[in-house]
Design a protein around this nucleic acid. Structure first.
Length: 456
RNA sequence: GAGGGUGUAGCUCAGCUGGUUAGAGCACCAGAUUGUGGUUCUGGGGGUCGUGGGUUCGAGCCCCAUUAUCCUCCCCA
Protein backbone atom coordinates (compact mmCIF):
# COMPACT_ATOMS: atom_id res chain seq x y z
CA UNK A 1 0.00 0.00 0.00
CA UNK A 2 0.96 3.58 -0.56
CA UNK A 3 1.59 5.32 2.77
CA UNK A 4 -0.38 8.48 3.39
CA UNK A 5 -1.73 10.64 6.19
CA UNK A 6 -5.31 11.81 6.70
CA UNK A 7 -6.42 14.81 4.74
CA UNK A 8 -5.65 18.10 6.40
CA UNK A 9 -2.95 16.74 8.72
CA UNK A 10 0.79 17.29 8.50
CA UNK A 11 4.09 15.74 9.46
CA UNK A 12 6.57 18.26 10.83
CA UNK A 13 10.21 17.69 9.93
CA UNK A 14 13.09 18.47 12.29
CA UNK A 15 13.59 22.06 11.25
CA UNK A 16 9.88 22.82 11.31
CA UNK A 17 9.50 21.29 14.77
CA UNK A 18 12.37 23.41 16.09
CA UNK A 19 10.86 26.54 14.63
CA UNK A 20 7.42 25.75 15.99
CA UNK A 21 8.85 24.96 19.42
CA UNK A 22 10.68 28.25 19.30
CA UNK A 23 7.33 30.00 18.90
CA UNK A 24 5.62 27.92 21.60
CA UNK A 25 8.43 28.48 24.03
CA UNK A 26 8.63 32.21 23.44
CA UNK A 27 4.92 32.68 23.95
CA UNK A 28 4.67 30.43 27.00
CA UNK A 29 7.62 32.20 28.62
CA UNK A 30 5.72 35.47 28.37
CA UNK A 31 2.54 33.86 29.72
CA UNK A 32 4.49 32.57 32.70
CA UNK A 33 5.92 36.03 33.36
CA UNK A 34 2.40 37.30 33.90
CA UNK A 35 1.46 34.52 36.27
CA UNK A 36 -0.43 32.32 33.82
CA UNK A 37 -0.21 28.60 34.47
CA UNK A 38 -0.16 25.81 31.94
CA UNK A 39 -3.13 23.50 31.49
CA UNK A 40 -3.54 20.47 29.29
CA UNK A 41 -6.82 18.73 28.65
CA UNK A 42 -7.46 15.42 26.84
CA UNK A 43 -7.54 15.14 23.06
CA UNK A 44 -11.05 13.79 23.40
CA UNK A 45 -14.00 15.08 25.37
CA UNK A 46 -17.41 13.62 25.98
CA UNK A 47 -19.48 14.44 22.93
CA UNK A 48 -22.10 15.98 25.19
CA UNK A 49 -19.54 18.51 26.46
CA UNK A 50 -18.91 19.83 22.99
CA UNK A 51 -22.28 19.60 21.26
CA UNK A 52 -24.30 22.77 20.96
CA UNK A 53 -21.44 25.08 21.92
CA UNK A 54 -20.25 26.13 18.48
CA UNK A 55 -23.51 26.68 16.63
CA UNK A 56 -25.04 24.49 14.00
CA UNK A 57 -22.10 24.85 11.63
CA UNK A 58 -19.58 24.12 14.37
CA UNK A 59 -21.41 21.02 15.56
CA UNK A 60 -21.15 19.51 12.11
CA UNK A 61 -17.38 20.00 12.15
CA UNK A 62 -16.77 18.10 15.37
CA UNK A 63 -14.84 14.88 14.83
CA UNK A 64 -16.85 12.14 16.48
CA UNK A 65 -15.28 8.93 17.71
CA UNK A 66 -17.06 5.66 17.03
CA UNK A 67 -17.69 3.56 20.12
CA UNK A 68 -15.78 0.34 20.45
CA UNK A 69 -17.42 -3.03 20.65
CA UNK A 70 -20.40 -2.30 18.40
CA UNK A 71 -19.82 -5.66 16.76
CA UNK A 72 -20.29 -7.50 20.02
CA UNK A 73 -23.10 -10.06 19.48
CA UNK A 74 -25.07 -8.72 22.43
CA UNK A 75 -24.92 -5.15 21.18
CA UNK A 76 -25.39 -5.65 17.46
CA UNK A 77 -29.17 -5.33 17.48
CA UNK A 78 -29.14 -2.13 19.52
CA UNK A 79 -26.32 -0.75 17.35
CA UNK A 80 -28.47 -1.23 14.23
CA UNK A 81 -31.38 0.60 15.81
CA UNK A 82 -29.09 3.39 17.03
CA UNK A 83 -27.41 3.73 13.69
CA UNK A 84 -30.73 4.40 12.01
CA UNK A 85 -31.01 7.46 14.25
CA UNK A 86 -27.50 8.57 13.29
CA UNK A 87 -28.58 8.47 9.66
CA UNK A 88 -31.34 10.88 10.60
CA UNK A 89 -28.68 13.28 11.88
CA UNK A 90 -29.10 12.61 15.59
CA UNK A 91 -26.42 12.07 18.17
CA UNK A 92 -26.74 8.67 19.75
CA UNK A 93 -24.58 7.71 22.73
CA UNK A 94 -24.87 4.08 21.70
CA UNK A 95 -22.86 4.83 18.56
CA UNK A 96 -20.60 7.68 19.65
CA UNK A 97 -20.12 9.26 23.03
CA UNK A 98 -16.71 10.89 22.61
CA UNK A 99 -15.26 13.44 20.22
CA UNK A 100 -11.96 15.17 19.49
CA UNK A 101 -11.78 18.61 20.97
CA UNK A 102 -12.74 21.42 18.65
CA UNK A 103 -11.09 24.30 20.47
CA UNK A 104 -9.45 25.00 23.81
CA UNK A 105 -12.07 27.33 25.24
CA UNK A 106 -14.90 24.87 25.89
CA UNK A 107 -12.63 22.22 27.46
CA UNK A 108 -11.25 25.02 29.64
CA UNK A 109 -14.77 26.06 30.62
CA UNK A 110 -15.54 22.43 31.43
CA UNK A 111 -12.39 22.25 33.55
CA UNK A 112 -13.25 25.41 35.44
CA UNK A 113 -16.82 24.23 36.02
CA UNK A 114 -15.58 20.84 37.26
CA UNK A 115 -12.97 22.32 39.59
CA UNK A 116 -14.34 25.70 40.60
CA UNK A 117 -14.43 24.57 44.20
CA UNK A 118 -10.68 24.00 44.27
CA UNK A 119 -9.54 26.85 42.05
CA UNK A 120 -8.69 30.19 43.55
CA UNK A 121 -9.96 33.06 41.48
CA UNK A 122 -8.96 34.93 39.46
CA UNK A 123 -7.64 31.85 37.70
CA UNK A 124 -5.14 32.34 34.92
CA UNK A 125 -4.29 29.54 32.54
CA UNK A 126 -2.59 29.12 29.21
CA UNK A 127 -2.91 26.14 26.93
CA UNK A 128 -1.04 25.14 23.78
CA UNK A 129 -2.51 22.03 22.22
CA UNK A 130 -3.81 20.63 18.95
CA UNK A 131 -7.49 20.77 18.09
CA UNK A 132 -9.40 18.99 15.33
CA UNK A 133 -12.08 20.08 12.91
CA UNK A 134 -13.76 18.02 10.21
CA UNK A 135 -13.63 20.97 7.85
CA UNK A 136 -12.56 20.63 4.24
CA UNK A 137 -8.91 21.70 4.20
CA UNK A 138 -7.53 24.51 2.05
CA UNK A 139 -4.73 27.02 2.17
CA UNK A 140 -3.88 27.80 5.77
CA UNK A 141 -6.69 25.63 7.04
CA UNK A 142 -6.09 22.20 8.49
CA UNK A 143 -8.06 19.45 10.16
CA UNK A 144 -5.49 19.26 12.93
CA UNK A 145 -3.91 22.49 14.09
CA UNK A 146 -2.59 24.08 17.25
CA UNK A 147 -4.22 26.72 19.32
CA UNK A 148 -2.44 28.79 21.89
CA UNK A 149 -4.76 30.47 24.37
CA UNK A 150 -4.42 32.44 27.58
CA UNK A 151 -7.47 33.28 29.67
CA UNK A 152 -8.20 34.68 33.08
CA UNK A 153 -11.53 33.90 34.68
CA UNK A 154 -13.22 35.14 37.80
CA UNK A 155 -12.24 38.77 37.43
CA UNK A 156 -13.96 41.74 35.88
CA UNK A 157 -10.97 44.02 36.26
CA UNK A 158 -9.88 45.80 33.11
CA UNK A 159 -6.32 45.43 34.36
CA UNK A 160 -6.52 41.93 32.84
CA UNK A 161 -7.15 43.45 29.44
CA UNK A 162 -4.18 45.75 29.91
CA UNK A 163 -1.94 42.83 30.81
CA UNK A 164 -3.13 40.75 27.90
CA UNK A 165 -2.33 43.68 25.61
CA UNK A 166 1.09 43.77 27.16
CA UNK A 167 1.53 40.03 26.63
CA UNK A 168 0.81 40.47 22.94
CA UNK A 169 3.39 43.24 22.72
CA UNK A 170 6.10 41.35 24.54
CA UNK A 171 5.59 38.04 22.77
CA UNK A 172 5.62 39.58 19.30
CA UNK A 173 8.61 41.72 20.22
CA UNK A 174 10.52 38.59 21.26
CA UNK A 175 9.51 36.88 18.02
CA UNK A 176 10.52 40.07 16.17
CA UNK A 177 7.19 40.13 14.34
CA UNK A 178 6.03 43.71 13.68
CA UNK A 179 2.36 43.97 14.58
CA UNK A 180 -0.64 46.21 15.00
CA UNK A 181 -2.81 45.42 17.99
CA UNK A 182 -6.35 46.63 17.46
CA UNK A 183 -8.87 47.02 20.22
CA UNK A 184 -12.53 47.87 20.35
CA UNK A 185 -15.42 47.20 22.69
CA UNK A 186 -18.34 45.04 21.87
CA UNK A 187 -20.44 47.54 23.81
CA UNK A 188 -19.62 50.15 21.19
CA UNK A 189 -21.13 47.89 18.56
CA UNK A 190 -24.19 47.35 20.73
CA UNK A 191 -24.56 51.11 21.09
CA UNK A 192 -24.35 51.42 17.32
CA UNK A 193 -27.02 48.77 16.88
CA UNK A 194 -29.28 50.56 19.35
CA UNK A 195 -28.78 53.85 17.56
CA UNK A 196 -29.85 52.43 14.23
CA UNK A 197 -32.62 49.94 14.68
CA UNK A 198 -32.13 47.99 17.84
CA UNK A 199 -30.35 45.00 19.33
CA UNK A 200 -31.99 42.53 16.98
CA UNK A 201 -29.69 43.89 14.28
CA UNK A 202 -26.54 43.57 16.38
CA UNK A 203 -25.40 40.31 14.86
CA UNK A 204 -26.17 41.38 11.30
CA UNK A 205 -24.35 44.67 11.72
CA UNK A 206 -21.41 43.02 13.46
CA UNK A 207 -21.04 40.34 10.83
CA UNK A 208 -21.25 42.92 8.04
CA UNK A 209 -18.73 45.43 9.35
CA UNK A 210 -16.37 42.66 10.39
CA UNK A 211 -15.94 42.02 6.69
CA UNK A 212 -15.19 45.67 5.90
CA UNK A 213 -11.56 45.32 4.88
CA UNK A 214 -12.34 42.16 2.95
CA UNK A 215 -15.30 43.24 0.83
CA UNK A 216 -15.23 47.05 0.93
CA UNK A 217 -17.70 49.61 2.18
CA UNK A 218 -20.11 49.31 -0.75
CA UNK A 219 -20.73 45.64 -0.13
CA UNK A 220 -21.08 46.26 3.59
CA UNK A 221 -23.81 48.78 2.78
CA UNK A 222 -25.52 46.32 0.46
CA UNK A 223 -25.46 43.62 3.07
CA UNK A 224 -26.81 45.86 5.82
CA UNK A 225 -29.62 47.24 3.67
CA UNK A 226 -30.50 43.72 2.65
CA UNK A 227 -30.97 42.87 6.32
CA UNK A 228 -33.78 45.42 6.47
CA UNK A 229 -32.19 48.61 7.74
CA UNK A 230 -33.19 51.91 6.15
CA UNK A 231 -30.82 54.27 4.35
CA UNK A 232 -31.20 56.65 7.25
CA UNK A 233 -30.18 54.01 9.75
CA UNK A 234 -27.28 53.01 7.54
CA UNK A 235 -26.04 56.60 7.41
CA UNK A 236 -25.19 56.35 11.11
CA UNK A 237 -23.16 53.22 10.40
CA UNK A 238 -21.39 54.95 7.55
CA UNK A 239 -20.43 57.88 9.79
CA UNK A 240 -19.29 55.38 12.41
CA UNK A 241 -17.08 53.53 9.97
CA UNK A 242 -15.44 56.77 8.93
CA UNK A 243 -14.31 57.75 12.41
CA UNK A 244 -10.57 58.42 12.35
CA UNK A 245 -7.79 60.34 14.05
CA UNK A 246 -5.75 59.79 17.18
CA UNK A 247 -7.24 57.42 19.77
CA UNK A 248 -8.43 60.39 21.83
CA UNK A 249 -10.07 61.98 18.78
CA UNK A 250 -11.67 58.67 17.87
CA UNK A 251 -13.25 58.42 21.28
CA UNK A 252 -14.51 62.01 21.04
CA UNK A 253 -16.07 61.45 17.63
CA UNK A 254 -17.70 58.26 18.80
CA UNK A 255 -19.13 60.09 21.80
CA UNK A 256 -20.49 62.79 19.51
CA UNK A 257 -22.15 60.23 17.25
CA UNK A 258 -23.50 57.76 19.80
CA UNK A 259 -23.20 59.69 23.05
CA UNK A 260 -26.87 59.34 23.87
CA UNK A 261 -26.44 55.58 24.18
CA UNK A 262 -25.39 54.50 27.70
CA UNK A 263 -23.46 51.55 26.22
CA UNK A 264 -21.33 53.95 24.23
CA UNK A 265 -20.27 55.65 27.42
CA UNK A 266 -19.35 52.30 28.94
CA UNK A 267 -17.38 51.34 25.85
CA UNK A 268 -15.45 54.58 25.89
CA UNK A 269 -14.61 54.06 29.56
CA UNK A 270 -13.27 50.57 28.84
CA UNK A 271 -11.11 51.68 25.95
CA UNK A 272 -9.89 54.74 27.82
CA UNK A 273 -8.85 52.53 30.75
CA UNK A 274 -6.49 50.62 28.48
CA UNK A 275 -5.22 53.73 26.71
CA UNK A 276 -4.40 55.28 30.08
CA UNK A 277 -1.86 52.51 30.56
CA UNK A 278 -0.36 52.91 27.10
CA UNK A 279 2.72 54.81 28.26
CA UNK A 280 3.56 51.93 30.60
CA UNK A 281 3.46 49.33 27.83
CA UNK A 282 6.55 48.28 25.91
CA UNK A 283 5.38 49.40 22.47
CA UNK A 284 2.39 51.74 22.75
CA UNK A 285 2.83 52.79 19.11
CA UNK A 286 1.53 49.36 18.05
CA UNK A 287 -1.78 49.82 19.88
CA UNK A 288 -4.74 51.09 17.85
CA UNK A 289 -8.39 51.73 18.46
CA UNK A 290 -10.40 50.32 15.58
CA UNK A 291 -14.17 50.78 15.75
CA UNK A 292 -14.66 48.53 12.73
CA UNK A 293 -13.17 45.62 14.63
CA UNK A 294 -16.00 43.23 15.43
CA UNK A 295 -14.72 39.64 15.66
CA UNK A 296 -17.01 36.97 14.35
CA UNK A 297 -17.82 35.27 17.60
CA UNK A 298 -20.93 36.40 19.35
CA UNK A 299 -20.02 35.53 22.91
CA UNK A 300 -17.79 38.55 23.44
CA UNK A 301 -19.29 41.21 25.68
CA UNK A 302 -16.57 43.80 26.34
CA UNK A 303 -13.14 44.63 24.99
CA UNK A 304 -12.11 42.71 21.88
CA UNK A 305 -8.62 42.31 20.44
CA UNK A 306 -7.15 41.51 17.09
CA UNK A 307 -3.50 41.36 16.00
CA UNK A 308 -2.29 41.83 12.43
CA UNK A 309 1.24 41.39 11.18
CA UNK A 310 2.65 44.44 9.43
CA UNK A 311 4.14 44.14 5.97
CA UNK A 312 2.61 40.77 5.16
CA UNK A 313 -0.60 39.82 3.43
CA UNK A 314 -2.19 37.63 6.02
CA UNK A 315 -5.33 37.49 8.12
CA UNK A 316 -5.16 38.14 11.84
CA UNK A 317 -2.48 36.26 13.78
CA UNK A 318 -4.16 36.70 17.13
CA UNK A 319 -7.43 37.70 18.69
CA UNK A 320 -9.58 37.55 21.77
CA UNK A 321 -11.83 39.46 24.08
CA UNK A 322 -13.96 39.53 27.18
CA UNK A 323 -16.88 37.21 27.67
CA UNK A 324 -19.34 36.65 30.48
CA UNK A 325 -20.71 33.41 31.78
CA UNK A 326 -18.09 31.12 30.30
CA UNK A 327 -19.17 28.23 32.50
CA UNK A 328 -22.90 28.91 32.80
CA UNK A 329 -23.63 26.21 30.25
CA UNK A 330 -22.02 23.73 32.66
CA UNK A 331 -24.17 24.90 35.56
CA UNK A 332 -21.69 27.26 37.18
CA UNK A 333 -22.83 30.87 36.71
CA UNK A 334 -21.13 34.18 37.44
CA UNK A 335 -17.64 33.44 36.20
CA UNK A 336 -16.66 36.20 33.76
CA UNK A 337 -13.44 36.04 31.85
CA UNK A 338 -11.19 37.50 29.21
CA UNK A 339 -8.73 35.75 26.95
CA UNK A 340 -6.52 35.97 23.91
CA UNK A 341 -5.17 33.47 21.44
CA UNK A 342 -2.14 33.30 19.19
CA UNK A 343 -2.56 31.88 15.68
CA UNK A 344 0.55 29.75 15.77
CA UNK A 345 0.40 28.40 12.24
CA UNK A 346 -0.04 31.85 10.77
CA UNK A 347 2.69 33.29 12.97
CA UNK A 348 4.94 30.57 11.60
CA UNK A 349 4.10 31.56 8.03
CA UNK A 350 4.72 35.25 8.76
CA UNK A 351 8.07 34.52 10.39
CA UNK A 352 9.09 32.30 7.51
CA UNK A 353 8.14 34.97 5.00
CA UNK A 354 10.05 37.68 6.86
CA UNK A 355 13.01 35.40 7.65
CA UNK A 356 12.72 35.91 11.40
CA UNK A 357 13.76 32.50 12.68
CA UNK A 358 17.23 32.35 14.28
CA UNK A 359 19.85 30.51 12.23
CA UNK A 360 20.70 28.32 15.19
CA UNK A 361 17.42 26.42 14.79
CA UNK A 362 18.60 24.90 11.54
CA UNK A 363 21.16 22.37 12.72
CA UNK A 364 21.11 19.62 15.27
CA UNK A 365 24.68 18.50 15.95
CA UNK A 366 27.56 21.00 15.98
CA UNK A 367 30.16 18.45 15.02
CA UNK A 368 30.36 15.27 12.96
CA UNK A 369 33.16 12.78 13.67
CA UNK A 370 34.28 11.08 10.49
CA UNK A 371 34.37 7.33 10.57
CA UNK A 372 37.70 6.09 9.22
CA UNK A 373 37.75 2.63 10.76
CA UNK A 374 37.17 0.67 13.95
CA UNK A 375 40.08 1.93 16.05
CA UNK A 376 39.55 5.50 14.95
CA UNK A 377 35.87 5.30 15.82
CA UNK A 378 36.57 4.08 19.34
CA UNK A 379 38.86 7.05 19.81
CA UNK A 380 36.21 9.36 18.36
CA UNK A 381 33.47 7.84 20.46
CA UNK A 382 35.05 8.74 23.79
CA UNK A 383 35.61 12.29 22.54
CA UNK A 384 32.00 12.48 21.37
CA UNK A 385 30.82 11.30 24.79
CA UNK A 386 32.87 13.99 26.46
CA UNK A 387 31.38 16.69 24.21
CA UNK A 388 27.89 15.39 24.85
CA UNK A 389 28.41 15.46 28.60
CA UNK A 390 29.27 19.14 28.19
CA UNK A 391 26.11 19.72 26.22
CA UNK A 392 27.79 20.03 22.83
CA UNK A 393 25.73 18.03 20.32
CA UNK A 394 27.96 15.66 18.36
CA UNK A 395 27.44 12.83 15.90
CA UNK A 396 29.64 10.03 14.64
CA UNK A 397 29.18 8.87 11.07
CA UNK A 398 27.50 5.50 11.30
CA UNK A 399 29.86 3.49 9.11
CA UNK A 400 33.25 3.70 7.51
CA UNK A 401 32.80 5.40 4.18
CA UNK A 402 34.48 7.60 1.65
CA UNK A 403 35.16 11.18 2.66
CA UNK A 404 32.95 12.35 -0.09
CA UNK A 405 29.95 10.66 1.43
CA UNK A 406 30.64 11.83 4.97
CA UNK A 407 31.14 15.42 3.86
CA UNK A 408 27.88 15.39 2.00
CA UNK A 409 26.08 13.99 5.01
CA UNK A 410 27.39 16.80 7.22
CA UNK A 411 26.37 19.35 4.66
CA UNK A 412 22.86 18.03 4.32
CA UNK A 413 22.34 17.93 8.05
CA UNK A 414 23.63 21.48 8.40
CA UNK A 415 26.40 20.33 10.74
CA UNK A 416 28.93 23.20 10.77
CA UNK A 417 32.09 21.28 11.79
CA UNK A 418 33.60 17.90 11.02
CA UNK A 419 36.33 16.14 13.01
CA UNK A 420 38.77 13.93 11.17
CA UNK A 421 40.64 11.40 13.23
CA UNK A 422 42.99 9.06 11.42
CA UNK A 423 46.19 7.26 12.36
CA UNK A 424 48.23 10.50 12.28
CA UNK A 425 45.86 12.24 14.63
CA UNK A 426 45.64 9.27 16.98
CA UNK A 427 49.41 9.12 17.21
CA UNK A 428 49.68 12.79 18.13
CA UNK A 429 46.48 12.69 20.20
CA UNK A 430 44.92 15.49 18.19
CA UNK A 431 41.77 16.09 16.16
CA UNK A 432 41.61 17.73 12.75
CA UNK A 433 38.61 20.06 12.94
CA UNK A 434 37.29 21.51 9.71
CA UNK A 435 34.85 24.38 9.39
CA UNK A 436 32.64 23.47 6.46
CA UNK A 437 31.49 27.00 5.74
CA UNK A 438 34.97 28.49 5.43
CA UNK A 439 36.94 25.38 4.50
CA UNK A 440 39.53 26.19 7.18
CA UNK A 441 40.86 23.36 9.24
CA UNK A 442 43.03 23.22 12.32
CA UNK A 443 44.59 20.59 14.48
CA UNK A 444 43.36 20.67 18.05
CA UNK A 445 44.73 18.60 20.95
CA UNK A 446 42.15 15.99 21.90
CA UNK A 447 41.89 17.24 25.49
CA UNK A 448 41.06 20.76 24.29
CA UNK A 449 38.30 19.77 21.91
CA UNK A 450 35.43 20.23 24.35
CA UNK A 451 36.70 23.64 25.43
CA UNK A 452 37.01 24.65 21.78
CA UNK A 453 33.32 24.00 21.15
CA UNK A 454 32.08 25.29 24.46
CA UNK A 455 33.65 28.66 23.68
CA UNK A 456 31.96 28.86 20.27
C1' G B 1 -22.84 22.52 1.40
C1' A B 2 -21.49 24.96 -3.89
C1' G B 3 -17.77 25.47 -7.74
C1' G B 4 -12.89 24.85 -10.28
C1' G B 5 -7.77 22.57 -11.14
C1' U B 6 -4.51 18.43 -10.93
C1' G B 7 -2.97 12.81 -10.45
C1' U B 8 3.18 10.38 -15.38
C1' A B 9 10.26 7.70 -11.65
C1' G B 10 11.66 8.84 -4.44
C1' C B 11 10.78 14.63 -5.52
C1' U B 12 9.52 18.74 -9.27
C1' C B 13 7.49 18.33 -13.81
C1' A B 14 7.68 17.71 -19.79
C1' G B 15 5.07 14.49 -23.09
C1' C B 16 2.65 18.08 -30.00
C1' U B 17 -3.87 17.50 -33.63
C1' G B 18 -4.24 9.95 -30.23
C1' G B 19 0.90 6.68 -33.61
C1' U B 20 6.83 2.15 -32.59
C1' U B 21 10.42 0.58 -26.87
C1' A B 22 7.13 7.06 -22.00
C1' G B 23 11.36 11.53 -21.07
C1' A B 24 14.23 15.69 -18.32
C1' G B 25 16.18 17.93 -13.90
C1' C B 26 17.05 16.89 -8.87
C1' A B 27 17.87 12.68 -5.60
C1' C B 28 20.05 7.69 -5.19
C1' C B 29 24.05 3.88 -6.50
C1' A B 30 28.88 2.85 -8.97
C1' G B 31 33.33 4.72 -11.31
C1' A B 32 37.03 8.70 -12.81
C1' U B 33 39.40 9.88 -7.25
C1' U B 34 42.19 3.49 -1.47
C1' G B 35 42.87 10.64 4.04
C1' U B 36 39.83 16.21 2.31
C1' G B 37 33.34 17.56 0.20
C1' G B 38 30.38 21.35 -2.55
C1' U B 39 32.41 21.46 -9.51
C1' U B 40 32.68 18.31 -13.72
C1' C B 41 32.35 13.82 -16.59
C1' U B 42 30.82 8.52 -17.48
C1' G B 43 27.65 4.56 -16.41
C1' G B 44 23.42 2.38 -13.59
C1' G B 45 18.87 1.15 -11.02
C1' G B 46 14.21 2.46 -10.84
C1' G B 47 7.11 3.65 -14.06
C1' U B 48 1.20 -1.94 -14.41
C1' C B 49 1.11 6.89 -16.70
C1' G B 50 -4.26 7.22 -9.50
C1' U B 51 -8.17 3.15 -10.25
C1' G B 52 -12.16 0.85 -13.28
C1' G B 53 -14.76 0.89 -17.70
C1' G B 54 -15.61 2.85 -22.80
C1' U B 55 -14.38 4.85 -27.94
C1' U B 56 -10.41 3.38 -31.55
C1' C B 57 -6.55 -0.63 -35.91
C1' G B 58 -3.98 1.98 -31.85
C1' A B 59 -5.04 5.75 -25.53
C1' G B 60 -0.35 8.87 -20.92
C1' C B 61 -3.44 12.08 -24.37
C1' C B 62 -10.51 11.55 -26.06
C1' C B 63 -15.37 10.07 -23.14
C1' C B 64 -17.77 8.19 -18.51
C1' A B 65 -17.37 6.71 -13.58
C1' U B 66 -14.54 6.46 -9.18
C1' U B 67 -10.80 7.90 -5.80
C1' A B 68 -6.98 11.06 -3.93
C1' U B 69 -5.13 15.80 -3.56
C1' C B 70 -4.91 21.20 -4.15
C1' C B 71 -7.66 25.70 -4.57
C1' U B 72 -12.06 29.31 -4.36
C1' C B 73 -16.81 30.59 -1.96
C1' C B 74 -19.51 29.77 2.82
C1' C B 75 -17.37 29.40 7.64
C1' C B 76 -13.26 29.59 10.46
C1' A B 77 -7.66 29.65 13.20
Amino acid sequence: MKPSIPQGTRDFSAEVVRKRQFIFKTISTVFERYGYHPLETPAMENLETLMGKYGEEGDRLIFRILNNGLDHPKKQEQARVDFEKVLEGKNVPGISERALKYDLTIPFARYVAMNHGQLSFPFRRYQIQPVWRADSPQKGRYREFYQCDADVVGSKSLLNEVELTSIYMEAFALLKVPVEIKINSRKMLSALANACGGQEYLTDITVAIDKLDKIGIEKVKEEILRKGLTEEQYSIIEKYLHISGSPAEQLEKAAALLGSEPLCEAAIAEIRFILDYADKLSSPESLFVDFTLARGLNYYTGIIFEVKAKGVKMGSIGGGGRYDELTATFGVPNIPGVGISFGVDRIYDVMEELGLFPESLKSGARLLFFNLGEKETKFAFSLAQELRSKNVAAEIFHETAKFDKQFKYAEKKNIPFVAIIGSKEMESNTVMVKNLATGEQQSIPANELAAFFESK
